[in-house]
Design a protein around this nucleic acid. Structure first.
Length: 480
RNA sequence: GGCGCAUUCGUCUAGGGGCCUAGGACGCCGCCCUCUCACGGCGGUAGCACGGGUUCGAAUCCCGUAUGCGCUACCA
């Protein structure tokens, strides 16, 4: 059997990390088995749909490097892949279900339903309100119709027995039919609900494995019943745990960055995000952490997916991103940095001196977004940090250190990092100061900050004239 | 309330009856390296939710409790 999986987000906004992990596991599973990955957009609830969300989801998946074989963009034999374009299929299925007695019209108003639910809530049959119109007489139907009451279509769930799900992540789970209730399949206007559209499309698209969030586990027996009523075979399921914030609540905007776009904007690389998310609920041997996409494909199995929820650890992601950045070769690093600065709208993006800075920053940055704060002041004139400047003014050695540094650097030839180092070490000896004492004022003068890239390299990068201008400017700010 | 899922260091996890004196990673702490910050190296801190069983033996199997989360929509 050829594996076919799908990632089926609803276009309600940016793709968040929970969705990415679901997409990733689906994709890895498909690639591991040489199967097909389908991207289907579940836009049956037009009211919740966000403008541009479909494009956004596609863009995010592209950036992550998760290419789906069939999607709204690529098309395919099982399309269309937008549920909003599949209306007639849902209508046909519903007509058949009603014909065969598997579904029926329910005329209850929202108020009636709500009142019934309130009454039934603490009884031993809390699902009873959903099946009140399950056996209407012709007379009752005629009366509701003459009143012009709108009807929804409900599925006729068996009253007895149970449905068993054999989940690849969680094992055997049984659900009592009596507690399921009669699911609404279609709204009055003919718009399908998720409970209809989702399993129907999985059937039509010949999906073999449904890998999705645990939040959908309770609706699984309903969908299985529906598929079987239609004569189909329900796919194997694998329900993934939720990704939580540090407060153990489902991850959301409140917890800080949670969407692909935010991580991208901060200068994270997709490989790191993918690697990290792969490890959020799955592991290879419990030891190996850094894995390429190829290795993940090779090693991923549902068997090793952890059923317990996972707290999203920003710090570990940040560490991993830094590890990925450090592993980049200089050209790739420069290219990635340039791309980040350009997307950020930074004027530094086009600076031809960027490659020269790479060796100075590569082991220091956890994300490209930190670049500007570290060395932006070397590329353009910046006001020094007030705290650093104050520290300079309060340093008793500042005046003589700066004087000596200026004297030592002025005649230096050639003006490279090696020579700068020799000169500055000479300054230390001459003044009988330790490097950590003497270099403080010089660093502030050069970088405008107490935290910066390497001092010798920074000075060499600036060149003699610019470096001297900065040192003299700092000298004028201190007395003595 | 009902139904369902889950429960190993602060966090992600390894572990599927004896190999566990519970391993790895992030974080944190200390030391080393060092021009700041990082990187790197070395060391340390810290965990099987609780209670019953089953067994010669349980982190591992069973039951219960507690806690957390999800669902209980004409959202998905």
């Amino acid at each position: 059997m050829t594996v076919r999986v799908r990632f089926a987000p609803s276009p309600t906004g940016y793709l968040h990390v929970g969705g990415v992990r679901t997409a990733l596991y689906n994709w890895l599973f498909a690639r591991h088995h040489g199967g097909t990955a389908v991207l289907r957009i579940e836009d049956t609830d037009t009211e919740r749909e966000a403008e541009g969300a479909v494009d956004q989801i596609q863009r995010s998946l592209d950036w992550l490097g998760l290419e789906f074989d069939e999607s709204p963009r690529t098309g395919g034999a099982h399309g269309p892949y937008l549920q909003s374009e599949r209306a007639e299929r849902y209508a046909a299925a519903v007509a058949r279900l009603v014909d065969e007695g598997h579904a029926y019209r329910c005329f209850q108003t929202a108020e009636e339903l709500e009142a019934a639910r309130a009454r039934a809530r603490h009884t031993d049959d809390p699902a009873a309100p959903t099946r009140l119109h399950r056996d209407l007489t012709q007379e009752q139907i005629a009366r509701f119709e003459s009143e012009g009451r709108p009807a929804v279509i409900r599925f006729r769930t068996p009253l007895e027995g149970e449905t068993v799900i054999e989940d690849d992540v969680r094992g055997r789970i049984a659900f009592e039919h009596r507690l399921l209730g009669d699911t609404v399949l279609m709204r009055p206007g003919g718009r399908p609900t998720y409970q209809l559209a989702n399993p129907l499309d999985d059937m039509a698209m010949e999906i073999t494995h449904v890998i999705r969030g645990e939040d959908l586990l309770p609706s699984t027996p309903r969908q299985k019943l529906l598929v079987e009523a239609l004569g189909g075979t329900f796919p194997t399921t694998a329900h993934l745990s939720m990704i939580l914030g540090t407060d153990k609540k489902r991850l959301s905007k409140r917890h800080g960055a949670a969407s692909v776009e935010e991580f991208r904007a901060q200068g994270y690389v997709p490989e790191a995000l993918v690697n990290f998310l792969a490890l959020c609920g799955w592991s290879w041997d419990g030891e190996t952490e850094i894995m390429s996409l190829e290795e993940l494909i090779e090693r991923f199995t549902l068997e090793r997916v952890n059923p317990a929820p996972a707290v999203f650890d920003h710090q570990k992601l940040a560490w991993m991103n830094g590890a990925y950045l450090r592993a980049l070769d200089a050209d790739a690093y420069a290219a990635g940095l340039r791309r980040h600065l350009a997307e950020d709208g930074s004027p530094l993006a086009d600076d031809p001196r960027l490659p020269a800075l790479v060796p100075m920053v590569q082991e220091k940055l956890g994300a490209f977004g930190e670049f500007d704060a570290l060395v932006g002041s070397l590329l353009e004139e910046r006001a020094p940090e007030p705290d650093a400047w104050a520290k300079l003014a309060g340093d008793d050695n500042a005046a003589r250190v700066l004087d000596a540094a200026i004297a030592a650097l002025e005649p230096l030839e050639p003006f490279d990092a090696e020579q700068v180092e020799a000169a500055l070490r000479g300054v230390c000896e001459q003044l009988e100061l330790k490097p950590r004492q003497a270099f403080g004022p010089i660093r502030i003068a050069i970088a405008g900050s107490t935290v910066a890239a390497g001092l010798y390299e920074s000075i060499a990068f600036l060149g003699r004239d610019a470096a001297l201008v900065r040192l003299r400017h700092a000298r004028s700010a201190v007395t003595g």
